[in-house]
Every structure is written in structure tokens, then in C-alpha cells.
Design a binder for these strands. Structure first.
Length: 592
DNA sequence: GCCGTTTTCGGCCCGACTGTTTTCAGTCG
């Protein structure tokens, strides 16, 4: 099983929720269906393997799943048997598909989308754009000039390709804006919150939180900063702008005493907030962005008295009988993290980079520079792993060049103090699973990273067989960027990660989390599967230039989202343990 | 649509801001 059927079912339920919204369905029903989609997505095993799902005779096992009731169980069973959901198909017949793109515009919810459709006959983005240009929207109830102008801008921004932004681009932008806000009068503290703080691989907007007493003044200053292209909202406790960088930035302004509650609320995820607030209610309290309070909520604007906890996240989690939970683990329906947050790997834990390119193939660094940078970072080991011969586009090394290169690295290593320099290779895994060098050549290296670079569109079965060959190869230490995906550009391979992880655990081969922000491969969900299977993880930068060593933090964030404890990450091991593993990976894996 | 150490009915997290409104629905996070 590749795990794909659950994703397909999840996307159908997600579509159903959207269509229900557009059809004017009760919002709680919509939420319930959307929740089914998330449950299916998060499910570790094939939904159709649940007893009764394929036969459709006894749905009690499906109904027993959290969030799935009679209706959803029936729809899931129908999908498992026929690959169709009749209720969804009926919804599709009644609602123009182009409305979903309109609903997706910022500022457009189900009510407005429906109104545009029913009052103006608009069924897609092009139609909406024309109607605005023609002035056909005037006179529609509750649709004034401001709203029409906002629609026009939202379409223009969408057309400019305001897609989700990669973590590696968004975080530096956020840090620079945070510095601008920090410099404003009356601002005491600024933190990045939202999906960026959770380390999501792509983000939709930047959320900032700051401490200040004079909210309106700070909001005013924020919306007039350099780089603001449009003001979306401005109030006394929050403001929201579009920036020249093509991303929306929301600022929330709070007093210091409520900082923890605000940070918790503004970090999310939405699901995590809902779960925490429910937990508060279960304990006779209520939670909002100002704190955790005794008794039930009495509505907005009510004086809430003295909070049970508010100043720090730790205090609020504590009063809810929870340990502090790292932002990277605040995803999904369940609160309980897979591992204690204080065991998660950190940037400071990393003592070695085992995947780096030099000028011998397509890197810009001489080996001497690589050594210097490793030393500056306090690494005890660094591996030079240039490309192999099949990666012609990357100036991959044939066997003769590899011998010369490795000999030079070894000569430098002999006189290198403080850092152990490893002669390695990033060897191509060919489409059929063979490696790009013979075993004898590979056996002469200190470290072998095996990675797929070509034939990245092969079938899941072929990809699985291909990667299994590499994982089981006795000379391979690390499976590099296992899927070859590029975020937002290339899907990459879709192998059976469970099978790969099981083989990696059995052979002591580590699976790489490639820290390059375009890759982040393995991704968070795959890391969790690998850890459950007992596999080791490597976090490498795959640096081709000096500044790319800084991408390590993106790999760390991704690994933390996957629940990686430091002791399962080979790069965090002490030198002796790492080198014992490199010499005898299966033996060291058995001891681990 | 889902769910139940108050429940098989009546709730469902909570608050800020906008726009088109004379008191609030819609949207967002």
C-alpha cells in the first residue's frame, strides 16, 4: 500500500465540504465534513482496511473512529467499493465548479460567493473579473463600492501568483519585518507566530505578535511602514497589510501580561486552538487570546477578571494539565505530542553535515573552505559528497576523477585539526535501483549518500523497488532526498514510505531530511512514519555554496514537525558513535 | 454532521475588524 487512497478520499470529502458551503449548508455540517477529510488524511492505515469498509455491511468500526458518524461511514464504504460518492456527485451537479476559486479569494466567504452566483450569475473568476469591469455588480444587496474594489484587488493579487510561499523565503522576510516593527516607538517585544513558527513547509501569510501599550499608534505605524502595498485592516489590537514581497502580514498587538495567551492563539494551528479551548471548557474554564479564565465565556467585550494563566504559554499548558508543546507539534486534531517537546532535535544539537558539494562537481566551495565553515559551526565531522557520473548536468565525477578527488580529500583530512573530513559521494540511484558506481569503488569511500535524481516520474511500485535497492545496499549509509520532490515545482517519487522505512530500520541505513528549503525531503509526515518504523534519520544541508549551510534550520523545523528526537538523528551523535556507525551501520543500528 | 462523567437533542472555540449597516452579518485567524 502506498497510502494514497486515504489522500484521495480526504480530498473528496474536502471538496464536498466546499460545495456544501457554497450550497448554503449549515456551517456545523460543513465543519463536520471537513473534519472527516482531516481524519482520513491523518490516518496511518488504509481506511478501506477498516473492517466492514469494503463489504459495507457493518459500519460500526468506521463509526467508532473519532469524527466519523453514520453518514460519513456510509460515504466511505461506498467509496471503498465503487470509488465514487453519490452525495458528492449530486453536489457537483448543482454547483458551478468555478465558484470554488471565488470562495478561495481572501474576503470571500460562502455568503458572498453565493450572492455573486445567484444575484449576478457569476460562476468563475473570469466572470467575476468581467462583471467588476462592466459595473454589473452595482445594486446587489450588501455589496458596496468598497467590497467591489476589494474583490478587484484580490483577483489581481491572485493573478500575480500569490501562492503559498516557501518557508525558506518567508522566514527571512518575516525576520526583516519583525526587525522593522521592533524599531517602532513603544514596541517592547516582537515574535513571529503562525504557521511560520510551526515550521510549515509553505505559508499563506506572516503572523507577527508584539507587546505595546498604545495599540492604535503601533497599528498606524505598522500600516505605514516601507514595503506596504495595501492596508487590509487597521484596528486597536490588530492590523493587516499586503507587502511588496507579495505576502500578507498580520500584526497583533497585546499587553505584556497576556503575551503567552496571545502567542498561543496566534501560533495555532487552528485545530490545536480548538482542541485547547475545548480542553479548557472540560475543566470548567475558557481560553481566549487574553488568557485562561475561570468559568464559561460570557461573550466579547466582557470584563473577564483575573486570568488563571496568561503571561506564558508554559503557564497555560500547565493549568490545562499539559506539558509545553513545541509549536512544530501543534498540528492536527489530537493535542498529545508523539514525543516530549524537550527531546526534539535542535540546530544546536547538530554536530556534523554529511552531504556537501565542492567545486569538484557543481558546488562553489573548495574543500578547504568547506573545512573552515564546518569548524566555524562547531561540527566534529563534515563529508564532501560530490555527484556521481550519471549526473552529467551537475558535472558528476567518473571513477577516475572520484579517485583523484577522494585522495585529495584524504590528504587534507590527514592535516586537518578539530574537524574530521570525510571522503564521500552522493551517488545516483539509477531508475532500476542500481547505483552509479560499482561496489568496490563505493567501498573505498568513508560515506555514501545514495539519491534519486532522474526518472522521478516512475510509478510508485517502481520507485519503491528502486529505493529499496539503495536502502538495502551494504555500502549505502544514507538515502538522500528520498522522493526528489521540489516544493511547488515537482511532485517527485511516491514510494511506499512504510516499506522504505522498515528496510532502513532493518539495515541501519539512515533516511535523509534534506534541509534545502526547496526540498525538505523527507517531509514531516514521512519522518513520523520512519520514526515509527525504527529508522535512523540524517539531517543534511546538501550545501552547494557557503550560505546554504544556513538552510539547516529549515531541515530542523521539518524534523521537529516529524517528531524527531536528537538521539535518532545521526548528525547529533558524538563523533565516536557517528564514526562507529559509518564503519558498521547495521551493527551500530542494532546497538541503538 | 457529530457527539454525550449534565445530553439521543441541542449544542458545536472565541474575538476583532470591515462594510453596509441604524444593530449586525460576514469573514478571518
Amino acid at each position: 500500500m502506498t497510502g494514497r487512497p486515504n489522500e484521495e478520499a480526504a480530498s473528496l470529502f474536502a471538496e464536498m465540504a466546499l460545495l456544501m458551503e457554497l450550497s448554503g449548508a449549515d456551517r456545523f455540517r460543513v465543519l463536520a465534513v471537513a473534519r472527516v477529510a482531516r481524519v482520513l488524511e491523518a490516518m496511518p492505515t488504509d481506511i478501506c482496511d477498516v473492517p466492514g469498509a469494503r463489504s459495507g455491511e457493518d459500519l460500526s468500526a468506521l463509526v467508532a473512529l473519532e469524527g466519523i458518524g453514520e453518514s460519513s461511514a456510509r460515504r466511505i464504504a461506498e467509496w471503498c467499493r465503487t470509488g465514487r460518492i453519490t452525495d458528492l456527485e449530486q453536489l457537483r451537479e448543482g454547483i458551478p465548479p468555478g465558484l470554488i476559486a471565488i470562495l478561495d479569494l481572501p474576503g470571500v466567504g460562502p455568503a458572498l460567493a453565493r450572492s455573486l452566483w445567484q444575484n449576478a450569475g457569476i460562476v468563475d473568476l473570469d466572470g467575476l473579473e468581467k462583471a467588476i469591469a462592466d459595473g454589473r455588480l452595482e445594486g446587489i444587496p450588501r455589496l458596496g463600492a468598497k467590497t467591489i474594489e476589494n474583490l478587484r484587488q484580490a483577483i489581481a493579487e491572485r493573478r500575480r501568483g500569490a501562492e503559498r510561499m516557501r518557508l525558506g523565503r518567508a522566514l527571512p522576510i518575516a525576520e526583516s519585518i519583525a526587525a522593522q516593527v521592533r524599531a517602532l516607538d513603544g514596541v517592547d517585544r516582537v515574535e513571529i507566530a503562525g504557521s511560520l513558527r510551526r515550521g510549515a513547509e509553505t505559508i499563506g501569510d506572516i503572523d507577527l505578535l508584539c507587546v505595546a501599550e498604545d495599540g492604535p499608534a503601533v497599528a498606524r505605524a505598522f500600516v505605514t511602514l516601507d514595503g506596504v502595498s495595501r492596508v487590509l485592516a487597521e484596528g486597536s489590537t490588530r492590523a493587516s497589510v499586503m507587502r511588496d514581497e507579495g505576502i500578507q502580514v498580520d500584526l497583533r498587538i497585546v499587553p505584556a501580561r497576556a503575551f503567552g495567551a496571545a502567542l498561543l492563539y496566534f501560533t495555532g494551528s487552528k485545530q490545536h486552538n480548538i482542541a485547547l479551548r475545548q480542553r479548557a471548557i472540560d475543566r470548567g474554564m475558557h481560553l481566549n487570546e487574553y488568557g485562561l479564565f475561570k468559568g464559561p465565556s460570557r461573550g466579547a467585550g466582557d470584563a473577564q477578571g483575573r486570568p488563571v494563566a496568561a503571561a506564558t504559554e508554559e503557564a497555560i499548558y500547565g493549568k490545562l494539565d499539559l506539558p509545553w508543546i513545541a509549536p512544530e507539534l501543534r498540528e492536527g486534531e489530537t493535542i498529545a505530542p508523539p514525543v516530549p517537546s524537550d527531546t526534539l532535535v535542535t540546530v544546536e544539537d547538530i554536530r556534523a553535515d554529511l552531504h556537501v558539494h565542492s567545486t569538484a562537481s557543481d558546488g562553489s566551495m573548495e574543500v578547504e573552505e568547506i573545512i573552515r565553515l564546518a569548524r566555524a559551526r562547531g561540527f566534529h565531522s563534515i563529508a564532501v559528497t560530490d555527484h556521481s557520473r550519471s549526473s552529467v548536468q551537475a558535472n558528476g565525477l567518473d571513477v577516475d576523477r572520484l579517485h583523484v578527488h577522494a585522495a585529495r580529500i584524504r590528504a587534507l583530512a590527514a592535516q586537518c585539526r578539530g574537524v574530521r573530513l570525510l571522503a564521500g559521494s552522493e551517488v545516483d540511484i539509477l531508475a532500476d535501483g542500481r547505483l552509479d558506481y560499482d561496489d568496490r569503488t563505493l567501498g573505498g569511500l568513508d560515506l555514501v549518500v545514495a539519491s534519486p535524481h532522474a526518472a522521478l516520474r516512475q510509478s510508485p511500485d517502481s520507485a519503491t523497488a528502486r529505493l529499496l535497492c539503495a536502502v538495502r545496499h551494504p555500502r549505502v549509509h544514507i538515502l538522500g532526498h528520498p522522493t526528489g520532490r521540489l516544493i511547488g515545482r515537482r511532485r517527485g517519487l511516491e514510494p511506499d514510505i512504510r516499506a522504505i522505512a522498515a528496510a532502513a530500520a532493518a539495515t541501519g541505513t539512515a533516511l535523509e531530511v534534506n534541509a534545502n528549503s526547496l526540498r525538505l525531503d523527507l517531509r514531516d509526515a514521512h519522518i513520523r512514519i520512519a520514526l515509527d518504523a525504527g529508522a535512523l534519520i540524517a539531517i543534511n544541508t546538501d550545501a552547494h555554496a557557503p550560505e546554504q549551510f544556513d538552510q539547516l534550520r529549515y531541515g530542523i523545523l521539518t524534523a521537529r514537525r516529524g517528531g524527531l528526537p536528537a538521539d535518532r538523528c545521526v548528525n547529533a551523535w558524538p563523533a565516536r558513535r557517528l564514526h562507529a556507525w559509518l564503519k558498521d551501520k547495521s551493527g551500530e543500528a542494532r546497538r541503538a
